[in-house]
Design a protein around this nucleic acid. Sequence first.
DNA 1: TTAATTGTAACTATAATGGTTACAAATAGT
DNA 2: ACTATTTGTAACCATTATAGTTACAATTAA
Lengths: 143, 143
Amino acid sequence: MINSRFAVAVHILSILALKERETISSEAIAGSVNTNPVVIRRILGDLRRARLVVIQPGAGGGARLARDAAKITLLEIYQAVEDTALFALHPQQPNPDCEIGANIQAVLEVTFDRAEAAMFRTLAGTTVDQILHDVLNRAREAS
Amino acid sequence: MINSRFAVAVHILSILALKERETISSEAIAGSVNTNPVVIRRILGDLRRARLVVIQPGAGGGARLARDAAKITLLEIYQAVEDTALFALHPQQPNPDCEIGANIQAVLEVTFDRAEAAMFRTLAGTTVDQILHDVLNRAREAS
DNA sequence: TTAATTGTAACTATAATGGTTACAAATAGT
DNA sequence: ACTATTTGTAACCATTATAGTTACAATTAA
């Protein structure tokens, strides 16, 4: 299972998209996500390194989007916060003296890459802007 | 990251596909996977419950495919050994008093389901038979 | 100068993961 | 009936991942 950092990262960027041009503190974001501000700052660090947000340190500081929300895809967010491959191979190297053991990992890698790529394509087809609009539509319908 | 049980399960079924109609013990499989037989038996238990293998207990017992390797897809294997959703949501419920917090999870679920479904479609397009043939082709090329 | 804020290290608690031992139950072969 | 083999599963262990927390130096606005 892909951990919650990705879900939280999308949440963070949706907040920044809503409050465009404002600078939002990790504490304010933590209030919406319902966690500790340090957890948010760690994820914001990944997003900053991926050039998705700009962070202003010091008093009155915080984060804002580095570019328009319509130009940030979920794939970019995923790659900013996840570094491992989607599928794990064997915990130990299989037996190289077995016909299957010697070759299964190379074959699985190709298959796994294809499956991961399919998932990536759908993430690349959704932007932060779209997420925000879906969220606001739901908020409107609920009221 | 999806754990190694899926990779090992595909490995197991490839062995059973190679030794069609034979009954293979968890110890023999463990020798190829390079792990403890109990680890194999646990995964075989999932595969049996999913009706992908048939297991013969007792002396001379072991596992064999429940049907032709060309009729077993990687998606069936994935669903046999994985029970959680691909993407985790937030560790804690987001703040329901925040417009974003109150609605982000419902929106993410839709998006995550689409991404997962795309991955599933590619897994459904590959069979154990194809994996086995790719493995054997590599084995031949390497010799 | 002060207060607010980030960045990061260090630590904790909990859960997931894979491996191991142990043993009852089932079964084949004699 | 006896023996040897094998599965199924519980119990436990070590390692790693995960998320949360405290603490504090560095940065910055006012």
